[in-house]
Design a protein around this nucleic acid. Structure first.
Lengths: 111, 111
DNA sequence: CTAATCTATTGTGATATTACGATATAAATT
DNA sequence: AATTTATATCGTAATATCACAATAGATTAG
């Protein structure tokens, strides 16, 4: 097999998992942090910054774009990338929705 | 290759990415949500709840345990699992640290 | 128009993930 | 002691991910 059985889960569960998957690589975390700091960047900036091959960076950017975390617009021969604010907040809220479900059980009925 | 170059990134970046990876599957989200609701559960409960094979659930539980999100204690022939509150909060804060770095650029210097 | 520059895509090899049946392990029951 | 019950581990097949060289595509510079 090797393929996730998405039909067994709710849309919300699949959605959070997809967002998490986008964040599940240190290079993509580094790209996002760079963007959060610099607002915008080009592929080439990241190649210098991260030390990965150009094709590899391009691949990671593609994955981030796929889930909507970043967007890119052509600027001459370059492509300018930035965070998509709406999507970023949306994902933040989804994670918060998950994390905030936790209530410290005053009665220690944990194992 | 096919292996992440962890040495290129900071410990913090690798750490968040690892936590995200643990959340990057809908079955593991479902397991966590089940635990957040029920406080504790057995492997068998999840097999009924999720409709995945026993071995598959066990594998997912192992991954969640590896990153410290859950813990399990033996109870006779069963194993009782629950969220690790400290680790859960720690991961929440790491995600918040990432998400809160974003400031809506009043000057729209995005692309 | 040609060359240079920058990014995306293609192809490929190495490794990781997902899923499950089969089997092993360990405790409780009879 | 033998059986039942519950979980973990092993083995394996299918698929996905990571990384990079090579190449293609598109725009600007000369």
């Amino acid at each position: 097999m090797g393929v996730t059985k998405s039909d067994l889960f709710t849309e919300a569960q699949n959605d959070v998992a997809l967002a998490a998957k986008a964040l599940a690589h240190p290079a993509r975390i580094a790209i996002i942090e760079f963007l959060l700091k610099s607002n915008t960047c080009f592929n080439g900036d990241l190649v210098n910054e991260l030390g990965l091959a150009q094709a590899t960076i391009s691949q990671h950017l593609h994955e981030l774009k796929d889930v909507g975390i970043i967007q890119g617009t052509i600027e001459g021969t370059k492509v300018c990338y930035c965070i998509n604010p709406q999507r970023w907040k949306e994902i933040q809220e989804k994670f918060n929705g998950l994390f905030n479900k936790f209530e410290d059980p005053s009665t220690n009925d944990c194992c």
